[in-house]
């Protein structure tokens, strides 16, 4: 366990000056700022909206692109960046002759990628709430402060996080074995498009395909409340696509460990 913690801290130390790390901060910030500007300049059209609809518009604008494109592409990039640090510096050999068990080195890297995705999505929640409330201060006619959906937002993003683990584990393994960006990126991109198509066309087995999971997570997030308006915003976190994603992540993670254990370091 000590080896894992040391390796994890080292992952942070190594990456804290790289785009891989800062992308996780900049991406939610940038999207938050853009949306803030959009709502600020178009505020006169939005003043008539009830607070709940305002929030749904505001958060929904991000979530819409999130599930289909931003999240899968971001994950492909993160999985690449944590591994490319070692590919570029030719440091796999030094990592694997440290007096630290191989599983610690491998697991720390994987969980660092998971941590980055978690941090990014947590910041999305934070910035969505923050910029929404900021709008109600600078434009008091936008009644963002009259409705609260912090819990629901957190649930939605947590669901997105869980649904992204399947892709992350696959992309992580691809980036671990291939030093160049194009192979994992190409495979990831094609699979993402296939996933989006599968999820939007309502293919019945799309829940089994990891690249369709973020999209499926968005479309399956609202609980079927049978027309009861008092529960119109109940979030269903643990749907079957989420379970598939988590199970797949676990299987790929363990398989990857055995491959790394046997792999010779060139």
């Amino acid at each position: 366990m000590k080896g894992f913690i040391l390796s994890f801290r080292s992952e942070f130390y190594k990456s804290r000056k790289t785009l891989g790390f800062w992308a996780s901060v900049i991406l939610p910030l940038l999207i938050g700022v853009l949306l803030f500007i959009g709502f600020y300049t178009k505020s006169e059209k939005l003043t008539s909206m009830p607070p709940m609809m305002l929030w749904l518009q505001f958060a929904g604008a991000i979530l819409g692109i999130m599930g289909s494109l931003v999240l899968p592409m971001y994950i492909i990039f993160i999985a690449y960046s944590v591994n490319s640090i070692e590919h570029r510096a030719d440091t796999w050999k030094t990592l694997f002759n440290l007096p630290i068990p191989r599983w610690s080195v491998y697991a720390a890297k994987f969980f660092y990628a998971v941590f980055l995705v978690f941090m990014c999505l947590a910041l999305f929640v934070l910035f969505t709430i923050g910029f929404g409330n900021l709008l109600s201060i600078v434009k008091p006619e936008l009644r963002f402060d009259d409705f609260h959906m912090e819990k629901e937002l957190a649930q939605i993003y947590f669901k997105l996080f869980l649904s992204s683990l399947g892709i992350l584990s696959i992309q992580f393994l691809l980036s671990l074995f291939w030093a160049d960006f194009l192979k994992p990126m190409g495979i990831g991109f094609v699979c993402t498009i296939a996933g989006v198509v599968a999820a939007t066309k309502g293919w019945e087995y799309s829940y089994l395909f990891p690249y369709a999971h973020p999209m499926a997570a968005i479309s399956s997030m609202l609980k079927n409340n049978h027309g009861d308006p008092s529960h119109s915003l109940q979030i269903d976190v643990f749907t079957k696509d989420v379970f598939v994603s988590m199970a797949l992540a676990l299987v790929v993670f363990i398989t990857g460990y055995f491959i790394v254990q046997r792999k010779s370091v060139k």
């Binding site: 390796s7 080292s10 130390y13 190594k14 000056k17 510096a89 030719d90 440091t91 030094t94 630290i100």
Partner: peptide, 18 residues
Amino acid sequence: ALYQHLTGRENLLNRALL
């Protein structure tokens, strides 16, 4: 094997941490 984006000292500090 050096991390090019880190300074010489940071390369050593990273290994010292490990």
